[in-house]
Amino acid sequence: MNATMNLPVPSANGSLDQYIAAVNSVPMLTQEEELELATRFQQDEDLEAARQLVLSHLRVVVSISRGYAGYGLPQADLIQEGNIGLMKAVKRFEPTRGVRLFSFAVHWIKAEIHEFILRNWRLVRIATTKPQRKLFFNLRSMKQGFSALSDKEAQRIADDLGVKPEEVREMETRLSGQDIALLADDGDEDGYAPIDWLADHESEPTREIERKAYDRLQREGIEEALASLDARSRRIIEARWLQDDGGLTLHDLAGEFGVSAERIRQIEAKALKKMQMTMVAG
């Protein structure tokens, strides 16, 4: 479906009220009209039919978006994301199933708004698993009052949502925290802001060049030192020290070579000493 379709677009520049008034003036479709339009779109790919289906349900997106006003994101942005979900719903809607488009579209509208909030809320990805997302979007409504959660309340919410009580505590802290400006106020000459502590001198270009040169020499030195070892010693060193997952144990290698763990330790110590001498000599 063409995502534009000449639909009205909400804006944060002062015309949001006009947009809401415009979409609320579009009459809702009767069940018969909805069935006819959906059938035309499904069978004939009639984009005008799809456009009418979307237009008649834009007010639904506006209504749903109001439920997410507490996350500090512009309602116009929430509406636009919800409209994307509505268009996805229209594209997937099957009129023969006997379900109204309104009921079918709610899931798609909310899903798109949820994704937008998680991508943009304080620019931090704070909810990655399904239970954490459920916690993120339900904690405010499940809290009783504005005071901090008691241990009993945190446990109740954790049980209801399938998460740990400490996850409830952490999410409560994040949701109640305040955003801090990265830059100081222009009018405050003596003010400090987080940017004043974020200078990373290690990322200065000459240091980066020096570090990369040092790393390259280290890699070349290790490769040369490994090449000086016999096959068994090299296998032991690589398995013990050069694996991302932590490497094998002495007992693992003892089983592989059919010797004792103490013998593997002796071979390892001798190989490391030889490598050290090779790298120093180089």
Rank of each mutant, 00 (worst) to 15 (best):
residue 59 R to Y: 06
residue 60 V to R: 14
residue 61 V to R: 02
residue 61 V to N: 09
residue 62 V to G: 10
residue 62 V to T: 15
residue 63 S to C: 07
residue 64 I to Q: 09
residue 65 S to P: 01
residue 65 S to Y: 10
residue 67 G to N: 15
residue 68 Y to G: 06
residue 69 A to W: 14
residue 70 G to F: 12
residue 70 G to Y: 13
residue 71 Y to T: 04
residue 72 G to Q: 07
residue 73 L to H: 07
residue 75 Q to L: 14
residue 75 Q to K: 13
residue 77 D to F: 04
residue 79 I to G: 01
residue 79 I to C: 09
residue 80 Q to V: 05
residue 81 E to M: 13
residue 81 E to I: 06
residue 82 G to R: 07
residue 82 G to K: 03
residue 83 N to Q: 15
residue 83 N to F: 01
residue 84 I to G: 13
residue 84 I to Y: 15
residue 85 G to K: 05
residue 86 L to Q: 08
residue 87 M to C: 14
residue 88 K to L: 12
residue 89 A to I: 07
residue 90 V to E: 02
residue 90 V to Q: 09
residue 90 V to W: 09
residue 91 K to W: 14
residue 92 R to F: 08
residue 93 F to V: 09
residue 93 F to I: 11
residue 94 E to C: 13
residue 95 P to I: 08
residue 96 T to R: 15
residue 96 T to W: 15
residue 97 R to P: 00
residue 99 V to G: 13
residue 99 V to K: 15
residue 99 V to M: 15
residue 101 L to I: 08
residue 102 F to M: 12
residue 104 F to D: 09
residue 104 F to E: 11
residue 105 A to V: 06
residue 105 A to D: 04
residue 106 V to E: 15
residue 106 V to A: 15
residue 107 H to K: 14
residue 108 W to A: 14
residue 109 I to G: 06
residue 109 I to V: 15
residue 109 I to Y: 05
residue 110 K to F: 00
residue 110 K to C: 02
residue 111 A to R: 14
residue 111 A to G: 13
residue 111 A to E: 12
residue 112 E to V: 07
residue 113 I to T: 12
residue 114 H to Q: 13
residue 114 H to S: 11
residue 115 E to P: 02
residue 117 I to L: 13
residue 118 L to D: 00
residue 118 L to F: 00
residue 119 R to P: 00
residue 119 R to T: 11
residue 123 L to T: 08
residue 123 L to P: 01
residue 125 R to S: 12
residue 125 R to T: 10
residue 125 R to W: 04
residue 128 T to N: 09
residue 128 T to Y: 02
residue 128 T to G: 04
residue 129 T to R: 08
residue 130 K to W: 05
residue 130 K to T: 11
residue 131 P to T: 04
residue 131 P to S: 04
residue 132 Q to F: 02
residue 135 L to H: 08
residue 137 F to P: 10
residue 137 F to D: 09
residue 137 F to V: 08
residue 137 F to A: 09
residue 138 N to Y: 07
residue 139 L to T: 04
residue 139 L to S: 03
residue 139 L to C: 05
residue 139 L to P: 01
residue 142 M to N: 07
residue 143 K to T: 10
residue 144 Q to A: 04
residue 144 Q to S: 06
residue 146 F to P: 05
residue 148 A to S: 13
residue 149 L to N: 01
residue 149 L to S: 01
residue 150 S to N: 06
residue 150 S to A: 02
residue 151 D to K: 06
residue 151 D to F: 00
residue 151 D to H: 01
residue 152 K to S: 10
residue 153 E to S: 08
residue 153 E to G: 00
residue 153 E to W: 07
residue 153 E to K: 04
residue 154 A to T: 00
residue 154 A to E: 03
residue 155 Q to F: 02
residue 156 R to D: 11
residue 158 A to N: 03
residue 159 D to N: 10
residue 159 D to C: 01
residue 160 D to M: 08
residue 161 L to N: 00
residue 161 L to T: 00
residue 162 G to F: 04
residue 163 V to F: 10
residue 163 V to N: 04
residue 164 K to P: 00
residue 165 P to V: 01
residue 165 P to T: 02
residue 166 E to C: 00
residue 166 E to S: 11
residue 168 V to C: 07
residue 169 R to A: 09
residue 169 R to E: 10
residue 171 M to T: 03
residue 173 T to K: 13
residue 173 T to G: 11
residue 173 T to F: 12
residue 173 T to A: 13
